[in-house]
Design a binder for these strands. Structure first.
Lengths: 224, 224
DNA sequence: TAAAATGGATACAAAAATGATACAAAAGAG
DNA sequence: CTCTTTTGTATCATTTTTGTATCCATTTTA
């Protein structure tokens, strides 16, 4: 099952947009183009992307506004700026972009940055970094400040479920069915107890919040 | 209440039923299984579903009969057919199914078809932007000016009802039955109180207006 | 314009849900 | 088989949510 990362490029200069798209596709990504801020916002609301590349100077909605929208969806953003726009560059990073690249750019540099940001946001599978934890999903090892945490089987699966669904309100039923792999019988406190244990062991007291009447939601500390 | 899309799977082969359910849950849907046509019909009458997946060859009541029942409830249907049943396939589509998929199938294909049909029937709307609010119906998070609002369970469901029915005068009775999921006993002020609380918390004093003797109407303030 | 009806505001109490703790059962290691 | 670790249940304390009662302001209607 091949999962390609999906990237949205918002850039009003067609030549550059096409150049970027071609190279991204060649490198194995899926890629959509939008030629204006408005179009970009539409795409964002219609699809799920793993990464966005935004020009700052855009017709209608500008790059900064798109940025905050993308961030609200928890999608990393790389700004693509024209050479002179140094002021914008600073502003861009300050305003929360995850990287930037100046036009004209080397294709290889672009790809390297793309790959880097995707990795940082663990949009690639094996390693997940979140809330101060380093999770190796294959080795089933979790590190905090370089120290290995002794998580039990269930605790690890639970953590993984949370890490892979940040920001989502997970129903007790959903949690139970994922981690225990069997049907949920309404009233048990089992899920709650395991959440409490995980919180304590992994120092996630603040990151895993209870959603009253529903279950729990994982909000990574690096992004509150 | 209105949260995740809810899907009913009617399939007598337990292994396949479980496989489908697991993958649907993983993809963020709620999912019930019925192992016979009769059971399927029961579920349909007891619950509200956004989509049905039916095997055609079922014990007791067959897929076609279920189909017409589901259609009478305005629920889209995808048929899951065994490979040989081409005749059935045609018959299935002609008889009004919204899509079909043949066993054995790729999980990704299944999910794509599910998503597609839900979209076609407007059953998906994870993100809603209205009156200066950003609602994430899956995470159950509401933001105003980037700040997360602390809404309770009922408040959130109430907001969702309003957001999905802008401009409509909603009867107290309707509101009660949607949000409380039980019958409305004439005189209570419960709905009013919750509307007041929601107005205050979400700054919707002007957007949610009382409709004398009827209930309330949500009139989004156009901005953003 | 005044009485009646209806919605808004506030306070408070009941109910429900989650956190914490202790302990028992089950599974695994030596 | 015994000891340790993991997992689950029961219980109590705390917090959050929800609903009722009450009083006040506003709108309708006669």
């Amino acid at each position: 099952m091949i999962i390609m990362n999906k990237i949205l490029v918002v850039e009003d200069e067609k030549a550059i947009a096409t150049l970027i798209k071609m190279n991204l596709i060649k490198a194995g990504y899926q890629c959509d183009i939008a030629y204006s801020g408005n179009e970009g916002a539409d795409r964002l609301s219609e699809n799920t992307y793993d990464l966005c590349l935004f020009d700052i100077m855009l017709p209608e909605i500008n790059g900064y506004e798109l940025l905050s929208y993308a961030k609200s969806l928890d999608i990393p953003v790389i700004f693509v700026t024209a050479k002179g726009e140094t002021l914008d560059k600073v502003k861009g990073l300050k305003s929360g972009a995850d990287d930037y690249i100046t036009k004209p750019f080397e294709v290889l540099e672009l790809l390297a940055r793309v790959e880097n940001v995707l990795k940082r946001f663990n949009k690639t599978d094996r390693f997940i970094k979140t809330s101060g934890l380093d999770i190796d999903t294959v080795a089933r090892i979790v590190k905090k400040d370089g120290e290995i945490l002794k998580l039990t089987y269930k605790e690890f699966d639970l953590l993984l479920l949370f890490a892979r669904n940040p920001g989502t309100a997970l129903y007790r039923e959903t949690i139970y069915e994922h981690v225990w792999d069997s049907e949920y019988m309404g009233d048990s406190r089992t899920v709650d107890l395991h959440v409490q244990r995980l919180r304590k062991k992994a120092g996630l007291e603040k990151s895993i919040e209870a959603v009253y009447k529903i279950g729990y939601r994982f909000v990574p500390e690096d992004r509150i």
